[in-house]
Simulated assay, not measured.
Amino acid sequence: MPELPEVETVRRGLEPALVGRTVTRLELRRPDLRFPFPPDFRARIEGARVERLERRAKYILAATDRGDTLILHLGMTGRFTIFRADGRVGVPGEFYDTSAAAGTADGPHDHVVFALDDGTRIVYSDHRRFGMMDLERPGESHPMLAELGVEPLGNELNGDYLRAAFTGKSAPLKAALLDQRIIAGLGNIYVCEALFRARLSPKRKAGTIAKRNDPRADDLVRHIRDILAEAILAGGSTLQDYRSAEGTKGEFQQRFLVYDREGEPCQNTGCTAKVKRIVQSGRSTFYCPSCQR
Rank of each mutant, 00 (worst) to 15 (best):
A43E: 15
A43R: 15
A43S: 08
A43W: 05
A43C: 00
A43P: 01
A43I: 12
A43H: 13
A43D: 15
R44V: 01
R44M: 02
R44I: 03
R44D: 02
I45R: 01
I45W: 04
I45G: 05
I45L: 02
I45V: 10
E46L: 05
E46W: 02
E46H: 00
E46V: 03
E46R: 03
G47V: 05
G47Q: 05
G47W: 00
A48E: 06
A48P: 03
R49M: 14
R49N: 12
R49V: 13
V50S: 07
V50H: 00
V50A: 09
V50K: 04
E51M: 08
E51L: 15
E51S: 02
E51W: 00
R52N: 13
R52L: 14
R52D: 13
L53D: 05
L53I: 09
L53K: 07
L53M: 09
L53T: 09
E54W: 10
E54V: 14
R56D: 09
R56S: 14
R56A: 05
A57L: 11
A57G: 15
K58Y: 13
K58A: 08
K58S: 07
K58W: 15
Y59H: 06
Y59R: 04
Y59T: 11
Y59L: 12
I60H: 07
I60G: 08
I60W: 04
I60D: 13
I60C: 04
I60L: 14
I60Q: 12
L61H: 12
L61P: 11
L61N: 10
L61D: 11
A62N: 00
A63G: 10
A63F: 09
A63S: 11
A63C: 09
A63Y: 09
A63N: 10
T64H: 07
T64M: 05
T64Q: 04
T64P: 00
D65R: 12
D65Y: 09
R66Y: 01
R66T: 11
R66A: 14
G67L: 02
G67P: 03
G67T: 05
G67Y: 03
D68R: 00
T69R: 11
T69A: 14
T69P: 01
L70G: 06
L70Q: 01
I71Y: 00
I71N: 13
I71K: 10
I71P: 09
I71W: 11
I71Q: 12
I71H: 08
L72C: 00
L72G: 08
L72N: 05
H73A: 11
H73N: 09
L74A: 11
L74H: 07
L74Y: 06
G75C: 06
G75I: 01
G75L: 04
M76G: 04
M76E: 14
M76K: 03
M76Y: 11
T77Y: 08
T77F: 07
T77C: 08
T77A: 06
